[in-house]
Design a binder for these strands. Structure first.
Length: 949
RNA sequence: GCCCGGGUGGUGGAAAGGCAGACACGGCCGCCUUAAAAGCGGCUGCCGCAAGGCAUGCGGGUUCGACCCCCGCCCCGGGCACCA
């Protein structure tokens, strides 16, 4: 980087250079810190401050998605959103709001742990060092954060409340009638009093303690269950789905991953499916993100239908379908290979009528089912998905009865039916379902159309609407024929309910949330097990459960192909921690601690609440502080942060988990807001070019030059690719580089002026100089570069300059409110460019310009503000307001179009009548009409004149 | 395959249905300088000497007027993917 702005010896002594910028920036960052400039007053508690200039003002909570402090530090892409929120927050402070803007760290997580395993350095050491580095980098950028509110999820004072919230969730259940979570004690009270029927019948008093415990645990919102998870023996841990690659191996280490049933903690997020879906309508979020959440939740309306099976001692097969109207066309039933009824249903010999294709070539159904299950289990998820077109399955040798036709229909198992969705069983209707059609063709099963297809569906399933056909029961008691799909659905559900064959039902694609990890660097669970293995919640008084020190941070690893191995968590080896004697109210007893830790998402589920009251030792957040900063504003407003800015990569997981926790806290009365994030904004990504040489090695991107449309590294031509910034791609540019070369203000202005905040764009270092020149022009407009004297004059501005100023103020305000920072900066540049030809800059322009610049370039603005004679920070100075009288011009210039092309223009007084404008326009283009009479003349007031010939 | 979001100069991007290309980078010319850099000023969509013509992915349509609205394609980016 040889073109960095090194001031030459003959640079004017008072020019705004990177060196001067650095001095100014350091000075103001120190002052802001000393003065506590960005401290936002709370209504109550230690952060209350009645004397603050914004105490009692209208509040605004501006939030960033907090970062994971990685060892690599920040590159220029990371702060884009942070600069955006900081600019917005600074603007809103000047516009009179009490703005809360803070930054924390999502600091538990795998990279620090893996580094610890490799080097023996404690994850806390690494993580804290990284946090310090991030803090220094953010400070260097001039972030106006309230540093008293900075939290990290690894702080014991933070995670004790993460554990506390876990206990709230563990100790509650979802009341489907009330549609909200309630304390588990209320459930027990209802069972005791008989208000609520005890599952399985009988009375509560008749049940033993362990029996009661099973029923209660079945209701908890946090529960332990045996569930299929991604088990990676090579790493010794279970993995989240997103940590598994497309070919079924671990993202880190490339080890095989197996689906295993393991005892894990889960959270009953599915109970909130409906509310998570409905409340999206109350949020000011980008539609694509809402859509992704809707798809993820995947609500399907249909029916549960019970198909009696021929071995009458076996329970009926319950299926879920969205098309109960097509039941007359259900010619077979399919269960997921893992379905629990399969073992009971499977026959010992092939019954009469078994077609060859159904047996898979096996001698009897037991062998066939066994073989098919084995084959299905050996397939990775990806393999299962890869051959979605080739349908496989096997007949179990048993039949079900179609409840409406009374006909026996064969029961199959097939991997196109998923165990985890609906009931894990379907009624197959090949006439109206493409997958069932494909399966029916392979297995030679009957196809009955029950909806009249429109043209073009010969040889294909028809999934559209139309009148029902072939849908009359043999006894004539039920007929759907002629009904449209919607009516047919209603009619059949009524029939099913009347006759005891099923009922209307809603199913979600959303699954309960796997909440435990076999890792060290996470929040310990506040849970112990008694000698019976029952999980017991620790009382609040025993929080926090501190993460113990261990010698070995790594989970036990195994032969990568040893699918039968079992996880051994790092904490489980800490015997003197695991084994514990506690008095939980019934005398001292021995217990065993939970040795899993929480997933990295836990802390990010509620951190925005802790910013509100970071030092509170008695509550996770004081209700008055929460209500002030996040409470609903009436109407349909769900409350939450006023603005949440972050990347779209968190569209589903983080945002859904956080909404879920928040709703539980709301139900239990701990917060007044229904949603955590009222308005969401996805900033774009800063991407970069990377270059590879002929051997496909990356070369230093900064050294590549373009010649005649090709790129060269030295004399070698290289290939350009476009994507992320990364160390291995040798294309990283850091904010530190930019601050050294131009100063933080230039960097901030550049990032905000590159384009709309929500759009991804390529980084281009050589373009940064444009923002630098802009700030230099602003500086030069107010300060003489040679003498350092002020160039501000007290005489009034000339009329055009004054009008330009007020037009700028008006436009900039609108742009700031609309988060259109790029066009706001363009307007400020135009105003500045309009000042350069003046002999001196009038104060009436200089002051508003400096104030409008302050959100983007706060340091230079503070410095100039001080030079303008002010002795306090401009943080709480009023943002300029345009004079409406100066926004209307005296005259208007109209373009005159003939047949859609501009052929002339006229200038008329702003208050001219339409008739005057018309006459003037016709006069102006009379020669071009060549005497022809225009057919039509359209005058658009203040816009243009359109003439049609 | 399905569902979103996009395609505007050499580049990033501006344009309540109303003068397409604001602002910036780059490029060209000039000033300053012994010189270079920095800085400053001018020009810069394409074709054309010019008059003028052509231009917002492609093809239609609505409109006095379309980057913007409608229909059909093409391409790029993202999400989901046997969810019954």
């Amino acid at each position: 980087m040889t073109d960095m702005a090194e001031p030459a010896a003959d640079t004017p002594p008072f020019r705004y250079t990177a060196g001067l910028a650095g001095e100014i920036e350091q000075r103001w960052q120190d002052r802001w810190e000393k003065w506590g400039t960005f401290h936002a007053p709370n209504p109550v508690g230690p952060l209350a401050d009645p004397d603050h200039p914004r105490a009692g003002a209208e509040k605004l909570y501006v939030l960033d998605m907090f970062p994971y402090p990685s060892g690599a530090g920040l590159h220029v892409g990371h702060p884009l959103g942070y600069i955006g929120t900081d600019s917005y927050a600074r603007y809103q402070r000047m516009a009179g709001r009490n703005v809360l803007h803070a930054m924390g760290f999502d600091a538990f997580g795998l990279p620090a742990e893996q580094y610890a395993v490799q080097t023996g350095t404690h994850p806390r050491t690494t993580t804290e060092a990284n946090i310090e580095r991030y803090r220094a980098q953010l400070r260097r950028l001039g972030m106006g954060h309230d540093d008293r509110r900075s939290v990290a999820t690894i702080d014991v004072d933070f995670y004790r409340w993460t554990q506390w919230i876990f206990l709230q969730i563990f100790n509650s259940w979802y009341d489907d009638e009330a549609r909200r979570a309630r304390p588990i004690s209320e459930l027990i009270a209802e069972f005791e009093s008989g208000i609520r029927a005890v599952p399985g019948g009988g009375t509560w008093a008749e049940l033993s303690g362990p029996q009661r415990r099973v029923i209660v645990d079945d209701h908890r919102l946090a529960y332990v269950s045996e569930a299929p998870v991604n088990w990676c023996p090579g790493l010794g841990t279970v993995l989240a789905n997103e940590e598994v690659t497309a070919d079924g191996r671990s993202d880190r280490g490339n080890f095989p991953v197996f689906k295993r049933n393991l005892k894990q903690w889960k959270m009953r997020i599915t109970a909130y499916g409906d509310r998570l879906l409905e409340d999206l309508d109350r949020l000011d979020w980008p539609e694509p993100i809402k859509l992704m959440q809707r798809n993820w939740i995947g609500r399907s309306v249909g029916a549960h239908i019970d198909f009696p099976v021929v071995p009458a001692d076996v329970a009926p097969v319950r299926v879920f379908t969205t098309r109960p109207d097509t039941i007359f066309g259900a010619t077979y039933v399919v269960l997921a290979p893992e379905h629990e009824l399969v073992d009971q249903l499977v026959a010992s010999a092939w019954p009469d009528g078994t077609k060859d294709a159904w047996t898979g070539g096996h001698a009897n159904p037991r062998v066939a089912v066994e073989a098919y299950r084995k084959a299905a289990a050996a397939k990775t998820d990806v393999e299962r998905q890869a051959d979605t077109k080739e349908k496989t399955g096997v007949f179990v040798g048993a039949y079900a009865t179609n409840p409406v036709t009374g006909a026996p229909i064969p029961i199959f198992i097939a991997d196109y039916v998923l165990a985890g969705y609906g009931t894990g069983a379907i009624m197959a209707v090949p006439g109206q379902d493409e997958r069932d059609w494909a399966f029916a063709e392979v297995f030679d099963l009957p196809i009955v159309r029950t909806v009249q297809p429109s043209a073009g569906f010969d040889g294909k399933a028809y999934t559209g609407d139309g009148p029902a056909i072939n849908s009359t029961a043999p006894d004539g008691g039920l007929s759907l024929d002629g009904l449209a799909v919607t009516e047919a659905k209603a009619r059949i559900i009524e029939w099913l309910e009347t006759n005891g064959y099923g009922q209307g039902a809603v199913t979600f694609r959303l699954r309960d949330w796997l909440f435990s990890r076999q890792r060290y660097w996470g929040e310990p669970f506040p849970i112990v097990y008694d000698e019976a293995g029952t999980p017991i919640a620790l009382p609040e008084s025993m929080l926090p459960v501190e993460l113990p020190e261990v010698e070995d941070f790594s989970p036990r690893t195994f032969d990568p192909n040893d699918a039968a191995s079992n996880p051994e968590t790092p904490l489980s080896r800490k015997a003197d921690w695991v084994e514990v004697e506690l008095d939980l109210g019934d005398g001292p007893k021995r217990y065993t601690r939970e040795t899993n830790v929480m997933p990295q998402w836990a802390g990010s589920c509620w951190y925005e609440l802790r910013y509100l009251d970071p030092t509170n030792e008695t509550r996770f957040v004081d209700p008055d502080n929460e209500a002030y900063w996040m409470g609903p504003r009436g109407g349909n407003d769900p409350g939450g942060t006023d603005l949440y800015v972050g990347g779209a990569e968190h569209a589903v997981l983080h945002l859904l988990y956080a909404r879920f926790w928040h709703k539980v806290l709301y139900d239990l009365g701990h917060v007044s807001s229904v949603e955590p994030f009222r308005k969401l904004f996805n900033q774009g990504m800063i991407q970069a070019y990377a270059y590879t040489d002929e051997r496909e090695r990356y070369v230093e991107a900064a050294e590549v030059v373009e010649r005649d449309g090709s790129w060269f590294h030295g004399d070698n031509q290289v290939t350009r690719e476009y994507g992320k910034m990364g160390k291995s791609l040798r294309n990283v540019v850091t904010p530190d580089d930019m601050c050294a070369a131009y100063g933080a203000d230039t960097f901030r202005v550049y990032e905000m002026s590159m384009g709309p905040l929500e759009v991804s764009r390529p980084w281009e270092t050589r373009a940064v100089v444009g923002s630098y020149r802009f700030l230099q022009r602003v500086w030069r407009a107010l300060v003489d570069e040679n003498s350092g004297a002020s160039r501000v004059v007290e005489s009034p501005a000339d009329e055009p300059t004054r009008r330009l100023l007020h037009k700028t103020i008006d436009g900039v305000r609108a742009d700031m409110d609309g988060i259109r920072f790029n066009t706001a900066i363009a307007k400020l540049i135009e105003l500045t460019n309009g000042l350069t030809r003046l002999a001196g800059t009038p104060r009436e322009v200089a002051e508003p310009l400096v104030l409008m610049l302050a959100p983007f370039a706060p340091h230079i603005a503070e410095e100039l503000w001080q030079r303008l004679g002010h002795d306090t920070s401009l943080t709480y100075a009023s943002f300029p307001v345009a004079d409406p009288a100066l926004l209307v011009a005296d005259t208007v210039t109209y373009p005159v179009q003939i047949n859609g092309k501009v052929r002339g223009r006229i200038e008329v007084p702003a208050d001219a009548t339409e008739e005057t404008v018309r006459t003037a326009a016709l006069a102006a283009i009379a020669d071009q009409l060549a005497g022809k009479e225009p057919r039509k003349v359209i005058v658009v007031p203040n816009r243009m004149i359109s003439i049609v010939t």
